[in-house]
């Protein structure tokens, strides 16, 4: 277990420079979008009241309160998070391939470590999960900071402040990543983890059988996706027999079974088939 912790730490530290850069980009772009919005509203307020002589009430009637809600739903605010999510997705593939590619074949070293090889699989998976949780936590942590920028620029009378909880509910992807009830949390992350496990297994199939493995991995991936979505096929055949909730649980159960099979398959590949 101690070695597993060291493996996770090692994997995390390898991505840390890129990860910190990503977090800085997220903060800078989101802060820039808040500053831009805040000064735009401020100039509208100034123009309406000073130039056109509107009262505060008239301005609010026409424009509404300035609030983080208006920024959170904008494309520019979500853009850095999309960039970070795409980077982490690419890293799900790269976290394996980087050890094979280039002159320095670190995979030799990893496969020779005195740990069960499946621990490499789990440590890379745990690293991905940490990266995602870290990104979510960072996003939640900077929301109040971003609101402070708004508070500094817009007078209180023209502003509607939100609680952090309120801001989370206003951001679609945070609503998804931090759902209000625990069951939704388990389901969302359960599907996410199952997807990562599936991708890892596909990579290991390819790394074990190389050219042939590409086809085998694609076949395995498509087969798994068909299975996960098979309840919907059943629903069509049985003419809407199931409730949506039941379909979701069926999908979830299939995803868990597939994940268990994928872990066993990956264990077998890592021990018996993998090549440096």
């Amino acid at each position: 277990m101690k070695l597993f912790g060291k493996l996770v730490n090692f994997e995390f530290m390898r991505f840390l420079p890129i990860y910190i850069t990503l977090l800085v980009i997220v903060f800078l772009i989101e802060a820039a979008s808040v500053i831009f919005y805040a000064f735009m509203v401020k100039s509208e307020i100034t123009e309406s009241i000073v130039k056109h002589g509107l009262s505060k009430e008239q301005f609010l009637q026409d424009n509404g309160y300035a609030s983080m809600v208006n920024i959170l739903s904008s494309f520019i605010f979500s853009l850095p998070v999309v960039i970070a999510a795409v980077t982490i997705f690419i890293y799900i593939l790269f976290i394996w391939y980087r050890d094979w590619l280039g002159k320095n074949t670190f995979i030799y070293r990893l496969l020779m470590l005195p740990v069960k090889r499946i621990q490499l699989f789990f440590s890379k998976g745990a690293t991905i999960l940490m990266l995602v949780f870290g990104l979510v936590a960072f996003q939640v942590a900077i929301l109040p900071v971003l609101q402070v920028i708004l508070k500094l620029v817009i007078p209180v009378d023209y502003r509607l402040d939100l609680t952090t909880q309120g801001m989370i509910r206003s951001l679609y992807y945070l609503r998804f990543l931090l759902p209000e009830n625990f069951i939704d949390f388990i389901i969302n992350y359960g599907f996410g983890i199952a997807f990562v496990i599936l991708l890892f297994t596909m990579i290991l199939i390819e790394r074990s059988y190389r050219f042939r493995g590409v086809f085998m991995a694609v076949f395995y991936g498509i087969g798994a996706l068909i299975l996960v979505f098979s309840p919907y096929i059943l629903q069509v055949i049985m003419k809407d027999y199931f409730f949506d909730n039941e379909l979701l649980w069926m999908q979830f159960a299939i995803a868990i079974i597939l994940s268990i099979i994928s872990v066993f398959l990956s264990n077998h590949l890592l021990n018996k088939k993998i090549r440096v």
Binding site: L3, K6, F10, R14, G102, K103, N104, T105, F106, Y108, R109, M112, L113, P114, V115
Partner: peptide, 29 residues
């Protein structure tokens, strides 16, 4: 496998590591 050590003809350490980092890595594991 702890009884055996393998010295391949390819470098199996990360390029950005310093030799002392490699020592630390080995002593960790």
């Amino acid at each position: 496998m702890e009884k055996v050590t393998y010295i391949p003809d390819a470098m199996t350490l990360l390029p950005k590591m310093r030799i002392k980092d490699a020592f630390q890595f080995m002593s960790d594991f």
